[in-house]
């Protein structure tokens, strides 16, 4: 917001710090361990993966250069595109659900509904659990014979709606999206609540005077003010869902009919479960996916920034 309207401040050269603000040896000492770890365990593996993507990598043999054949193969790989579709669906639907439900919940707490302290804990707890625990728990909830969902449906008399939720290609992905929503909405709610609480009270008082209704206050005053936070949360959630692996791995492993296959699970399958032992092709998937995620994040930030001149 500031950069475009106040070029003067940017143009001012930074004030020269005192001499000891640049003690080279101290900088090197402080930065070296972090850089070393970064180089050894992040940068090098990434470069290795990129190198892999143009090679055939099997045990007991030297890597064999295959050019871009993996990339061409990937272009024609139906399972990969299915996985891309699923992951993108997840990464677009989940953030919207999480953030919109979280906004309503945060608003309720902001309006001081009874038991708000208890509610905050109850809503936030799911995010503390590991995906492994969450996966097992929800497999039970979706169990056909005695799971909570079907038991509830039968109890209210909708026996016909009972389903093997994770076993049908039409319901499996939505069922898993409901799990991530369950897990992450509370987290989003807490962030939004924090943003609401930090709003200047004058603004809200002004709205009172203008005789805005409860809904009007929400729509015209609060939401626009916390908009940057909401957009940040959407981007965060988007990134998280583009990576999703653990939950699928514990529950469905991509079944049925690849309805829940995500790019991460497919990479893992191809790298560590496929009968070929080749690490080259899965690396290609990883590289292509990396580019897609990057592009997605850039596009989202660009989009939001244009609309709202959002600051990061």
């Amino acid at each position: 917001m500031t950069a475009s309207t106040q070029p003067a401040t940017v143009a001012t050269p930074p004030r020269k710090e005192r001499d000891h603000a640049n003690p080279r040896s101290a900088i090197a000492t402080f930065l070296f361990p972090a850089l070393l770890i970064y180089a050894a365990f992040t940068a090098l593996p990434v470069m290795r993966t990129i190198y892999n993507s143009t090679h055939l990598i099997v045990p007991n043999k030297p890597a064999e250069w295959v050019g871009f054949t993996h990339y061409i193969e990937l272009w024609n790989d139906n399972i990969f595109w299915k996985a891309v579709g699923n992951t993108l669906t997840w990464a677009t639907v989940a953030p919207l659900m999480e953030v919109s439900i979280a906004t309503i919940l945060a608003l309720a707490l902001y309006a001081k509904v009874p038991f708000s302290r208890f509610l905050r804990v109850a809503w936030f707890t799911p995010v503390l659990m590991s995906y492994v625990v969450v996966g097992i728990l929800w497999m039970w909830i979706y169990n056909y014979d005695w799971g909570a969902v079907n038991s509830f449906l039968r109890w209210i008399g909708l026996d016909g709606w009972a389903q093997p939720w994770l076993g049908h290609p039409d319901t499996a992905l939505p069922a898993l999206i409901a799990v991530t929503t369950w897990m992450w909405t509370g987290f989003n709610m807490v962030v939004i609540l924090a943003a609401m609480s930090s709003l200047p009270s004058e603004v809200l008082e002004a709205a009172e005077l203008d005789n805005c209704g409860w809904f009007g206050k929400l729509w015209f005053v609060i939401l626009p003010l916390i908009r940057p936070t909401l957009l940040n949360l959407i981007v965060l959630s988007f990134i998280g869902k583009m990576k999703i692996f653990d939950l699928v791995w514990v529950t469905t492993q991509g079944n049925p009919l690849w309805a829940t296959e995500t790019v991460s699970t497919y990479v893992y399958k191809r790298a560590f479960q496929w009968s070929t032992f080749d690490l080259g092709y899965p690396s290609t998937i990883a590289v292509v996916w990396f580019v897609i995620v990057m592009a997605g994040v850039l596009a989202l930030t660009r989009l939001f920034r244009q609309k709202d001149k959002l600051e990061y």
Binding site: L44, T49, K243, V263
Partner: peptide, 15 residues
């Protein structure tokens, strides 16, 4: 932060 883990995990495994 935005790296998908699969872009590191295979190379990391080899390394």
């Amino acid at each position: 932060i935005i790296f998908p883990p699969q872009v590191t995990v295979i190379g990391l495994f080899q390394i």
